[in-house]
């Protein structure tokens, strides 16, 4: 028994290969995270834990607060919209990649990945320049072209936040889609066309459904990133703009109400998991053909 245990340990079988990462994450991520989130169930005053013990005051208080639900809705719809926008922009690009020759593929890949080499905050500041007031690049161009006579208010709107998020998160949608589309079996399409289906029908009935794994991966990553991002809403949404993630930041860093901040963080994290789970379940439903049936 002990010998078998030692052999498995030495040969790196079973769960052993995962142990170093697990230990590291437990000490430096899971425990601190749990401690932080537990603040939501106790009274914290300016960084000092009061001896008031366990309380559900912050949970019930937050859930009964109309403002919380309004902020939640804002986070949700900004997240969903920018995720869908990412998908609509990324899919044609990934498809183009899969149909291209070597040079074009390299070009698309470089253009997709290179923004990731710059900090997301820097890129968000760039949007300030592009969208900002009368001298912003977009407005001044439109005015010069005579399309509009007075600058449109773009900065500090939902539009600016969604555009910024979409640009920053686009690579995370493109990459998984490229992976599935480039590896797909072209004989499927040849078979479909050969049986008399049009190119458009072939795309919607064969190519699109078979790229579900990439779509699910992209939607999951981009939604999680958009839903929890607090920098882009703060910079591009302006002072009055708030989402759940922004609220967490403000409660903990500005207001120093750690209990409320921890509770909001817990609700943000929990609801994010729920949405990711829903996306995954929907994907599984579409992909039910891939599960082996009982013979």
């Amino acid at each position: 028994m002990a010998a078998a245990f030692w052999t498995r340990f030495r040969d790196g079988r079973g769960i052993w290969p995962a142990v170093p990462a697990f230990v590291f994450l437990t000490i430096f991520f899971i425990i601190p995270m749990a401690v932080l989130l537990s603040f939501g169930f106790t009274e914290i005053e300016r960084g000092r834990i009061q001896d008031s013990g366990f309380t559900l005051r912050y949970l019930t208080g937050t859930l009964q607060d109309d403002l919380f639900w309004w902020v939640w809705w804002k986070s949700f719809y900004i997240g969903i919209l920018s995720t869908l926008l990412c998908f609509l922009l990324a899919y044609p690009l990934a498809y183009l990649y899969s149909e291209s020759g070597r040079t074009m593929r390299l070009l698309i890949l470089v253009l997709t990945i290179s923004p990731l080499l710059t900090s997301a905050i820097v890129r968000t500041y760039a949007w300030l320049v592009l969208l900002g007031g009368r001298r912003g690049v977009v407005n001044s161009t439109l005015i010069e072209l005579g399309v509009i006579s007075r600058p449109i208010r773009m900065l500090n709107t939902d539009f600016a936040v969604i555009v910024g998020m979409t640009q920053v998160h686009l690579p995370f949608m493109v990459l998984p889609l490229i992976t599935v589309l480039a590896a797909r079996d072209r004989n499927m399409e040849a078979a479909s066309l050969g049986m008399g289906a049009s190119r458009l029908a072939t795309f919607f009935k064969i190519v699109l459904p078979l790229s579900t794994p990439g779509i699910v991966a992209g939607l999951t990553i981009v939604f999680a990133l958009s839903y929890t991002n607090f920098i882009i809403p703060q910079l591009l949404g302006g002072g009055g703009f708030t989402t759940l993630a922004v609220q967490v930041y403000e409660q903990i860093v500005v207001v120093l109400n750690w209990s409320k901040g921890a509770m909001l963080a817990l609700l943000l994290l929990g609801s994010c998991f729920v949405f990711i789970l829903l996306i995954g379940l929907a994907g599984n439903r579409v992909m039910r053909w891939s599960q082996k049936e009982a013979a």
Binding site: D185, N187, A190, A191, G194, M195, G196, A197
Partner: peptide, 28 residues
């Protein structure tokens, strides 16, 4: 190919994995 009235059976069959047998056959 689609205007030649030929049926083609591919080496790997190229069956549509997301459709049942009946749906595959009904596709054309």
């Amino acid at each position: 190919p689609n205007r030649r009235d030929v049926g083609f059976v591919f080496q790997n069959y190229a069956l549509f994995p997301h459709m049942t047998v009946a749906e595959n056959v009904a596709y054309g």
